[in-house]
Design a protein around this nucleic acid. Structure first.
Lengths: 231, 231
DNA sequence: AGCCGGCGTAAGGATTGCGTAAAGACGCGT
DNA sequence: ACGCGTCTTTACGCAATCCTTACGCCGGCT
């Protein structure tokens, strides 16, 4: 099976060039020309690698990396015309695995692609971008939540909290972990926030908020989202 | 615990420079000036990351990578004065994870170090997170316990005690060890707590709490969890 | 036999943590 | 400036957990 590579790049010339080169090297190629299109393709096909141009027309490449990292651990190699060091650092810290400046050599790109693919651990689960729990469906790629097919509106904090639980579905997350990743390291003491927002989530998502079946509380420890076993 | 980085570099200036920089960033540094010395240090201390200069006096850097890869999968970042593309390709294909050309920016190096260490993260999940004993299953990663497929609710102390036994499955843990790791060093005398909570665990987990088959007591010494032999 | 230390069982009260509600504060767009 | 949605703060009733105390059992020792 040929590895599938997703190329997110708006310049036609580079796209055409890479299309030929990557095909010759035995890769199967997906193409996208905008950030939104690229994210959608990544969610639908779960490629083995993403080549990302930072200079996209509709959104900053940085946000593409961040949005991707909200649900996927696919290797990302950035291709950018920006040679400045701060650009590299922010991209790498946002979750990119490598950073090449244009113009780049084909041989080096290929070698770095091989490194990235080699890095992909066999145990690296190809997580689906949508987590299901009973009548709930949490689409981490689209940032949307639905209950029994009906879309549910969540406030930003409500979604962040639910997404954090969904990313580790089945596992217990401590108060500390949740507060740190949702509210930031400074709010690690405010357990009250969690109770309030868990209550709000249960009101919107559970059939009987007083007797939750998926948003479970582990008294004295934290909370967890109980997903469908057939994940 | 500070990550340990092994620096294999013969030039004193660069070594001194990186020593200061890496220490300031919170890393613990090992240093080697030759290939043979570097390989020996890597074998003895198993660092979290290797920074490798290709221009070593006693051997080619390439062979260092190859020798290292014969037994270790530690991330290797190459620091080289060679800008030629074939050099990069051969180094990366030999097993290096990244390649920076001198002179490099400190910020970029730090970012790439963070990438390499982040990448190594899934590697430490090599330990089996689920301990089995008969119809019991203890998932240490999810902090959940099930008996015959049915999830069992445990209070924080009950779980902490069981987890401590499961982490050392098969071995006898003394009263002292258990009390210190679960209740804290101040409660080392209260053997009573152990009896109470072991009884509660047996009620929830054993088929016949009066005749335990997995949560065994070693009279006068401590307790132990008897796991499946096929673990 | 009788005493005693180690172990298991049971139950009650104190403490802590959790869920709910409501009101004030903040930011944002109209 | 106003209203709206959202986030934060505050207060209180309830449930879960934990610690304490008490008692029965078994084996070894005097």
């Amino acid at each position: 099976m040929k590895p599938v590579i997703l190329l997110i790049e708006d310049e036609l010339q580079i796209r055409r060039f890479l299309r030929v080169t990557l095909s010759a090297e035995g890769f199967s190629l997906l193409e996208a020309t905008t950030a939104t299109e690229g994210l959608a393709e990544a969610a639908r096909h779960t490629p083995a690698l993403v080549l990302l141009d930072l200079g996209l027309p509709d959104a900053d490449g940085l946000t593409v990396i961040q949005r991707l990292r909200e649900w996927s651990s696919v290797p990302v190699i950035v291709l950018s015309a920006r040679h400045q060091e701060p650009d590299k650092v922010t991209a790498l810290d946002a979750g990119a695995d490598d950073y090449l400046t244009k113009p780049f050599g084909v041989a080096e790109l290929m070698a770095r692609i091989r490194v990235a693919l080699r890095h992909r651990q066999p145990g690296d689960e190809a997580v689906s971008p949508v987590v299901r729990a009973g009548e709930l469906a949490i689409d981490l790629a689209a940032r949307s939540v639905s209950r029994a097919g009906q879309p549910v509106h969540l406030t930003p904090l409500e979604y962040d909290l639910l997404a954090e639980l969904a990313r580790h579905a089945g596992k217990v997350l401590t108060h500390r972990q949740l507060l740190r990743s949702v509210w930031g390291p400074s709010a690690v003491e405010h357990n009250h926030y969690l109770r309030i927002y868990m209550a709000q989530l249960r009101h919107k998502l559970e059939r009987d908020p007083a007797c939750p079946r998926h948003l479970l509380t582990e008294t004295g420890v934290g909370y967890r989202l109980l997903p469908d076993p057939a994940a």
